[in-house]
Nucleic acid binder design. Structure first.
Lengths: 123, 123
DNA sequence: AGACGTAGTACATTTTTTTGTACTAATGAG
DNA sequence: CTCATTAGTACAAAAAAATGTACTACGTCT
């Protein structure tokens, strides 16, 4: 269930959070379109080059086909990635970042370095 | 279920993704600690000042008590926020960003402006 | 003719997350 | 003595997300 503006700061309480209420939709939108478990990693993986469905599946080998397809479809619907089907047999489908998706790269980069600083490298 | 490094690029396939495999844990870590539905908005709400539990609850009025507590506990466990209990009656508990949490502010800021650019303001 | 490979879809089941309801402690106010 | 207040907890139930299994189409290779 997405976070709609209606779920943030109930009607009648805007005056208590006047600045917050005016600005929160920006972060709410971004939170919503990136809320899947694998979204960041998929964007990260597409950052430098387009990838075939099967490449993503090998890289994220532990995700189920259904989930991967769902995440990709959502990213596509939100305009972050482009899906290109080549009329070949067997089929070839390549995923890549759209212009909008590329604008997200700075976020990905900061998140990566944040994680490198604080995360543990161990499996 | 968290994304562990074991779930990314199966053993034996590292050579195919040698650079990716070396760097992906950064983004995986960040994805994991921010994977709750309300995490970004909570961090965003704490960005400029500390807030009481009840303030957060009024702002995010549609979240259940249990969920809010869970999100706050997870953020605390991951070291992004500090929970301070004042020995008063009725109790007062204030949440604020830790140093680590403050390092996340640039990400929040970029996400907010990204959302402002692409999201819809309408309720 | 039959098997192979890619990129999926469909659907029932399992797992995870979120919700709703009731309940608690401590103390000051009336 | 009783009520109000804050910041929760506990637990069952509902909702959402993820999984596993089976199945498909289409040309190519053997």
């Amino acid at each position: 269930m997405d976070i709609s503006m209606a779920r943030i700061c109930k009607d009648g309480f805007e005056k208590e959070f006047i600045n917050e209420h005016r600005d929160v939709y920006g972060i709410a939108y971004t939170q919503n379109i990136l809320s899947g478990r694998w979204k960041y990693i998929i964007l990260w993986f597409l950052k430098n080059k387009e990838r075939r469905y099967s490449e993503i599946k090998v890289f994220l080998w532990d995700i189920s086909q259904g989930s991967l397809t769902k995440q990709l479809r959502e990213l596509e619907a939100d305009g972050l990635i482009k899906r290109e089907v080549f009329p070949e047999v067997p089929p070839r489908v390549e995923y890549s970042l759209t212009t909008k998706g590329q604008e997200f790269i700075p976020i990905i980069d900061i998140m990566e370095s944040f994680g490198k600083k604080y995360g543990e490298k161990s499996k």
